[in-house]
């Protein structure tokens, strides 16, 4: 069921969008690291790549519930997802990690601390993700903002292969308006809050690029098994 709004709103379409995005939020996914295998870099990376592959399936299903996404051409739907998938994955990790200190909650059963990050060779990348966590912690990002920002990251992914840029712009406008309307109603004390949230997107893009490059180089080494969808999305980004 949709969560009730915290304050009465104007009943406009835009707030319906935030409510709709809350309902469309996927169920949590577990990492399920193999307990019979001793911890190693390969095990950690295999666990993360398998988790990402399963999350991608869910993200593709989720995107279809963003109002206006499914009316885009199939080509444009693919282009947006191919550009934004890592940003969407990272926003999920970041949101799950907001109530943790210096740990990244890739899944409820897979929380990476500094030691595990070092073991996996992910110390640099995870430090970059923790910088995003700190940013959203300081903003006290709430769930409504998280789901709206995720949809905005998808619509605003700057793919070079968009066929109908007017339709994509319309999608961006609808989501932007939803965020502004939500902030106007729920955070009227800070008139710059929507802007502050949008200003986090460059760091998200930068961190996602770093993550894709890192996992692409892992793919080239060939030591970590990767599922087909994850590989397909990784190859679409480089």
């Amino acid at each position: 069921l949709p969560q009730p709004m915290k304050k009465p709103c104007n009943g406009t379409l835009v707030n319906k969008i935030v409510s709709h995005l809350l309902v469309a939020e996927p169920e949590k996914i577990y990492a399920m690291p193999d307990p019979s295998i001793p911890d190693s870099d390969i095990k950690a990376l295999t666990t993360l790549c398998d988790l990402a592959d399963r999350e991608l399936v869910v993200i593709i299903g989720w995107a279809k519930h963003i109002p206006g996404f499914s009316t885009l051409s199939l080509g444009d739907q693919m282009s947006l997802l191919q550009s934004a998938w890592m940003e969407i994955l990272l926003l999920g990790v970041v949101f799950r990690s907001l109530h943790f200190d210096d740990e990244l909650v890739f899944a409820e059963d897979y929380v990476m601390d500094e030691e595990l990050s070092r073991l996996a060779g992910l110390l640099d990348l995870n430090s970059a993700i923790l910088q995003l966590v700190r940013k959203y912690k300081s903003l006290k990002l709430d769930k409504e903002e998280f789901v709206t920002l995720k949809a905005i990251a998808l619509a605003n992914s700057d793919s070079m292969h968009i066929e109908d840029s007017e339709a994509v712009q319309k999608l961006q406008d609808v989501l932007h308006e939803a965020l502004q309307d939500y902030e106007g109603n729920q955070h009227s004390e800070d008139v710059r809050r929507a802007g502050k949230l949008l200003m986090t997107l460059p760091l998200l893009r930068q961190t996602a690029t770093k993550a894709v490059q890192h996992f692409y180089s892992i793919k080239l080494e060939g030591k970590v098994p990767m599922h087909k969808l994850f590989l397909e999305m990784l190859e679409a980004k480089v």
Binding site: V23, A24, P26, E27, V57, V58, I60, G61, W62, K64, H65, L74, Q77, M78, L81, Q82, K228, L229, E232, M233, E235, A236
Partner: peptide, 20 residues
């Protein structure tokens, strides 16, 4: 689309959507 056939299939196939 040949290079991206899983994404293409999942977008076309309604079965991947989470139940709402």
């Amino acid at each position: 689309t040949e290079r991206h056939k899983i994404l293409h299939k999942l977008l076309q196939d309604g079965s991947s959507s989470p139940d709402i």
